[in-house]
């Protein structure tokens, strides 16, 4: 029996549990967004604020994927399918940020045209 046929037969109690998880997560995500907005205006160390912002964003990113996108309830294959692309994208971003540093870029060669 396909998943499409078995989906309607899913236990309604598990769907109700997910409903409560969704509510809680939505409230947490809204609160985090508010915290991020306030955080940038606080007179703290730049590196600290930057790190906290990144951490909060990563938490939001992972929690939406895990719960709203149902990845924790699904098979590992789907995590691998998405995770591969995500890992390549993250690696590319990090590599480019290091490669394209001011010290490595020859501005004269770029502006020669």
């Amino acid at each position: 029996m396909s998943e499409a046929h078995s989906a309607p037969h899913a236990d309604h109690s598990s769907e109700n549990e997910k409903y409560h998880a969704f509510i809680n997560l939505a409230l947490v995500l809204a609160a985090i967004t508010g915290i991020e907005l306030v955080l940038v205006y606080l007179p703290f160390n730049e590196f600290l604020i930057f790190s906290v912002l990144i951490a909060l964003s990563l938490f939001k990113f992972v929690s939406v994927i895990a719960w709203f996108m149902h990845l924790i309830y699904d098979r590992l294959l789907l995590t691998l399918a998405f995770g591969t692309g995500l890992a390549i994208a993250t690696g590319t971003v990090i590599a480019l940020m290091f490669i394209m540093d001011r010290g490595f870029v020859d501005f004269e060669a770029i502006t020669a045209f």
């Binding site: 294959l77 399918a81 995500l86 390549i88 994208a89 590319t92 971003v93």
Partner: peptide, 22 residues
């Protein structure tokens, strides 16, 4: 052992990650 539509969408989203990442 997973629905093909879901698998394809997750693969597409993985590729879209690379698209937005760049």
């Amino acid at each position: 052992m997973v629905d093909n539509k879901k698998l394809l969408m997750w693969l597409f989203l993985g590729s879209d990650c690379m698209f937005f990442g760049t």
